[in-house]
Write a protein that binds this DNA or RNA. Structure first.
Length: 578
RNA sequence: CGGGGCGUAGCUCAGCUUGGUAGAGCGCCUGGUUUGGGACCAGGAGGUCGUAGGUUCAAAUCCUGUCGCCCCGACCA
């Protein structure tokens, strides 16, 4: 590529709406431009990076025995209705009605369609196992796109779906993908950790998440120092709080006037209490029935744990009308008494609440709270609709199997799921086994966010001057910077350029008629791993300079040796990522 | 969806409080000097001040609606 002909609009200044480093650098380096909120156009250099990543993904998927397909992005609503995910996905699902009045879904993922396709053609155990994947645009109507490409509405995802005859075979398919993912992230040059994850509304029995640890990540990873446990926050189990044996006497319950104090913060301020002395009573709705959750005031409900506890069913916060109907009070004053307990389909009580001796909770009467509430005495801990479980987010200070839990942020770049028969049974993806008995296929699904790999690589690899790409996903491996308009410089540069192309090296030659300083800045910003600088002084001695983007020193080599030297360097940089 | 902030030249922003001929830096074009880390001089192009309405002799500036963008939250019990 000739830089003079390339469309790489770099920027000196930081666009005001870019907050995190990957977003800023991807814009500044001319890799992409924003078209609308959460919607980006990838420019030539950015597209080259995406193609490098998809190339690696494709190779490793194929090597793992998966076969590439291409499914429609606009999918019939009927398929989504059959699995119920038109509802489960909620408003994140992008939909439209076409001129014939048919409902359409802008695919956010493709379990339905792939199961429909696979199921239609798979009839016998002899055809199994099979693994089909695609690399395509996905659309999610995010409630709030943010962090540039990390949470965008449209993005590129590799999604694979495996079909197996039995659990043992599914385990193998799952493992093959798990291993392929490790190779993919290794080759892309991004550091990653693997954590146990929840399956959420995807359904299924097991899942691992591949996460790039970094400050700007949206996910929280929870782990023990010795590495014996790592999970994401949605999944992370915590040891139940110890129930104190020596429990001081608690006085009678007492109702106190707490005008307008409906939030934990307000109640604490009003009663001069600490949040961990409060018991919050959350009211949710699942299948039109109320579900009540009791938590300690300083804890947060873990929606994933709640979803799991309800068997994967969609659950959401109750509206005001239901809260009022159940608690007989305004929102903010519910307590675990009367109809709130009696009419709930299920009451989930977190372990930490059970361990409380004396708490403060809503009085089921507007503007009143009750103090001296003793779990078990003042509200039941047992009953047909009462369950004591772990249903909150882990917090600093919690332990798992006796070991303290640590927290760090990360970007989710991939996740693998064992789906089981959730989709195959609903969409009729069945096969006959050797005995002639019909079974739904056991499925797995495996996703990788292509743009997220790109952004997380930038988050991990940059310095004050710009991006520092791992060579495997750099838009070009080598840049030749012609520092000067001298004839000897041009001649040597063109010669090396031609030789490198001949050797199959991805090279861009900066032949623009501008000052050297600008070329150096652009090369650094763009993050090309290897730079050859040809300047007046060195060329007079018959030499050129070679510099790695990640290092500050350069070395001089004879013009005649340059090409071979570069080939060696590129090879060794590539080998680092194997 | 709730809260906060911002929309003025391609980019970053000033001007708005106190209404009176639209500004700077960077970028872009022309000429010259420069030429190894985002050069300098001279000249130039480029803006219905997001949009619609209102107040006023007069609106980028004040008021109202609306659209877009960014941030925080959506765990309120």
């Amino acid at each position: 590529m000739r830089y003079s002909k390339a469309f790489i609009p770099t920027m000196k200044e930081v666009p005001s709406d870019a907050e995190i480093i990957s977003h800023q650098l991807m814009l500044r380096a001319g890799l992409m431009r924003k078209v609308a909120s959460g919607t980006y156009a990838y420019l030539p250099a950015g597209q080259r990076v995406l193609l490098k990543i998809t190339g690696i993904v494709r190779q490793e998927m194929d090597k793992a025995g998966a076969q590439e397909t291409l499914l429609p992005s606009v999918q019939p609503m009927e398929l989504w209705q059959q699995t119920g995910r038109d509802v489960d996905y909620g408003e994140t699902l992008g939909t439209f009605v076409d001129r014939h009045g048919r409902g359409n879904v802008l695919s956010p993922t493709a379990e339905e369609v792939m199961t429909f396709i696979g199921g239609g053609e798979i009839n016998s155990y002899k055809q199994l196992p099979i693994n089909l994947y695609q690399i395509s645009f996905k659309y999610r109507d995010e409630f709030r796109p943010r962090y540039g490409v990390l949470r965008s509405r449209e993005f590129t995802m590799k999604d694979a779906y495996s079909f197996d005859a039995d659990a043992e075979s599914l385990e193998k398919s799952y493992r093959a993908m798990y291993d392929a993912y490790c190779r993919i992230f290794q080759r892309c040059g991004v550091e990653y950790v693997i954590v146990e994850a929840e399956t959420g509304e995807m359904g299924g029995s097991g899942s691992h998440q591949f996460t790039v640890p970094c400050e700007n990540g949206e996910d929280v990873i929870v782990y023990t120092e010795d590495g014996s446990y790592a999970g994401n926050l949605e999944k992370a189990d915590v040891d139940p709080a110890a129930i104190p044996t020596d429990q001081p006497d608690v006085g009678e319950m007492k109702e106190l006037h707490t005008p307008n104090a409906g939030t934990i913060e307000e109640v604490c301020k009003f009663l001069k209490a600490k949040p961990h002395k409060l018991i919050k009573t959350l009211i949710y709705v699942c299948e039109d029935k109320p579900v009540v959750i009791l938590l300690r005031g300083d804890h947060e409900l873990n929606q994933e744990k709640l979803t799991q506890a309800l068997g994967g069913k969609h659950v959401e916060l109750a509206d005001e009308a239901m809260v009022v109907e159940l608690s007989n009070a305004a929102v903010g004053f519910a307590g675990p008494f009367g109809d709130v307990i009696a009419k709930a389909a299920t009451v989930f009580i977190d372990h930490s609440v059970v361990a409380m001796n004396k708490g403060i909770c809503g009085a089921n009467r507007s503007n009143y709270h009750i103090v001296n509430v003793k779990p078990g005495r003042d509200f039941p801990l047992e009953g047909d609709n009462i369950k004591i479980i772990d249903i909150r987010n882990a917090v600093q200070g919690d332990t798992y199997q006796g070991k303290p839990l640590l927290f760090k942020r990360g970007i989710e770049v991939g996740q693998v799921f064992k789906l089981g028969t959730k989709y195959s049974s609903k969409l009729g993806a069945k096969f006959l086994d050797a005995d002639g008995t019909e079974h739904p296929c056991l499925m797995g699904c495996y996703g990788i966010g292509i743009n997220r790999i790109m952004a997380s690589a930038v988050e991990l690899c940059y310095d004050d001057n710009g991006i520092v790409w791992p060579i495997s996903i750099a838009p070009w491996q080598v840049i030749i910077t012609l520092a000067g308009a001298d004839e000897n410089i041009t001649e040597a540069g063109e010669k090396i350029y031609a030789q490198l192309l001949e050797k199959g090296i991805e090279v861009i030659i900066d032949d623009r008629d501008i000052r050297g300083g600008v070329k150096f800045k652009d090369a650094d910003l763009l993050g090309i791993p290897v730079r050859i600088t040809i300047g007046k002084k060195s060329i007079a001695e018959g030499k050129v300079e070679i510099k790695l983007r990640r290092e500050s020193d350069n070395k001089k080599v004879d013009v005649a040796d340059c090409t071979n030297e570069i080939v060696t360097i590129v090879e060794s940089l590539k080998n680092e990522l194997k």
